[in-house]
Design a protein around this nucleic acid. Structure first.
Lengths: 266, 266
DNA sequence: GCTAAATGTACGCATAGCGTCCTCATAATC
DNA sequence: GATTATGAGGACGCTATGCGTACATTTAGC
């Protein structure tokens, strides 16, 4: 009751600044100060000061009363995009997947019970539900999420199964822990998952885990619509391509991160 | 003398927080509190509080005294990655370029006299100088930079030519405003630029501007090494591919941003 | 031309966040 | 293996920082 609000060594202004950045969710192109204030729940002068700060840093700009983030905001992610980071290593192989399948390819990791998309490569035809880099989707209703859950340790999986309420998105969404356990078992056996209309109607996806040193560091998937791809086509033609890409990404990742392999340093 | 340091409506803590994030430059994988404090010039407790704040938000984590950014930091860029943003629109066509040329392709915009890389797609063979998304390079010594400079308004160009000191990176770097004017004129005539060893020895790049509504909203380039590609090969085989991609990106950008075309709103 | 809603700005107060200081743990040096 | 040096973690009092209320001003809308 004392540690969650502000624990003396946590900086309020930074948390507020981040909340303002998150108010730009990518859907609304430009936001007014008042709209942001309403979203995040701070007073307007506070939001204004935060925006002016970001503007001074070059991360935001205002055009006649409406605010936008500038491309320079990408700078904040550079620290994660190391030479050996998962997206950095994955992109070349994802390119291969897009070329061979003609569909959109994504790479994601498990983050707080959700799939965080760290890399994405679209085919020329855009999909109805566009999932941009940085966005999260519920793990229990996505193919990538389930292949990652399938490789979790027993304790971590139990925690997920007990803590997460399984939101229902479509009639095909897996809703019970029992059904999820069953599905995860078959994923472990087959090595892939196909999710048909579990999150969005009309959408289908296949995913394979990227295994490095025995742990699933991410999942690679292909998403499409049910009119373009059937479950059989996914299994027969796309899963092998994904499997090959996952293996090559893992190998390249191992090569790029030699210090992670085997035991600790020296 | 009063407006630059802290102007009463700018939040110091946020600026400090951003500086700490930038201390993670992608080269050093993990940093200690003391190392960051030395880099940014704040006291250690301040850096520690900032890191704890980001850790609480899920953007940073510490492993036995060393700190890292987590993939979730990508969330902060989501606000820029709109459906109609330049990288979002470009990636599919960049994929095409990589496929047809077998080389690394990048898209960048002009930002404060530097080229800010907003999208990048590598071929499988990594390049010696890896330029990640979010990083900036000097405009005067890169192909993308020069095609963007070539489309600047007269005033903006004059300001750039007078303000920027042209750092010398190699013997081939353009160092004088006169030489730059000459080069820009030929770029306007030919529609592309090829930069051979102007920034890094052994590297060569070709770039073409992405023109939307008469203004250059970005540049697309292919980078390689001088052993793999000659200037002639660049001009004859790669520039046409880039030109086609640039045109298609511009067209798609126009389609994705209908409100930007023609006159202002209403 | 009047209401309404949103922006920019000012300013005094409270507190958030700063730095100094101390303790403890972990390495490096001889 | 004793000794120094370097860094992490934490406590605490003071002050500058950044908060919100309040007012002035602009822009849009019926």
């Amino acid at each position: 009751m004392e540690d969650d609000s502000h624990s003396r060594d946590r900086i309020q202004s930074i948390e507020r600044g981040v909340e303002v950045l998150r108010a730009f969710d990518g859907r609304n192109s430009a936001l007014s100060v008042a709209a942001i204030a309403k979203t995040v729940g701070f007073s307007r002068p506070v939001v204004r000061r935060i925006l002016l700060t970001f503007a001074h840093l070059g991360y935001a700009e205002s055009a006649n009363g409406l605010w936008n983030l500038t491309p320079r905001i990408l700078e904040l992610s550079v620290g994660y995009f190391g030479a050996a980071s998962l997206p950095e290593v994955s992109y070349p192989f994802m390119s291969d997947v897009v070329e061979r399948t003609g569909e959109t390819c994504s790479v994601g990791t498990l983050d707080r019970g959700e799939v965080l998309h760290v890399a994405r490569l679209e085919d020329r035809r855009p999909l109805p539900h566009s999932v941009r880099v940085g966005t999260r989707l519920p793990a229990h209703a996505t193919a990538t999420g389930k292949v990652l859950l399938a490789h979790l340790s027993t304790e971590a999986l139990e925690e997920f199964l007990s803590s997460s309420p399984f939101d229902v998105h479509t009639p095909h969404t897996i809703t019970t822990a029992a059904a999820m356990r069953e599905r995860l078992a078959s994923i472990r056996e087959q090595g892939y998952d196909i999710s048909q209309e579990e999150l969005n109607p009309g959408m289908i996806a296949a995913a394979v885990a990227i295994i490095h040193d025995g742990v699933a560091i991410g999942g690679i998937s292909v998403s499409s619509t049910t009119v373009r791809e059937s479950e059989n086509a996914m299994r027969d033609t796309i899963v092998p391509v994904l499997q090959e890409a996952a293996d090559r990404i893992a190998a390249q990742y191992r090569y790029a991160n030699p210090h992670l392999s085997g035991g600790r340093h020296h």
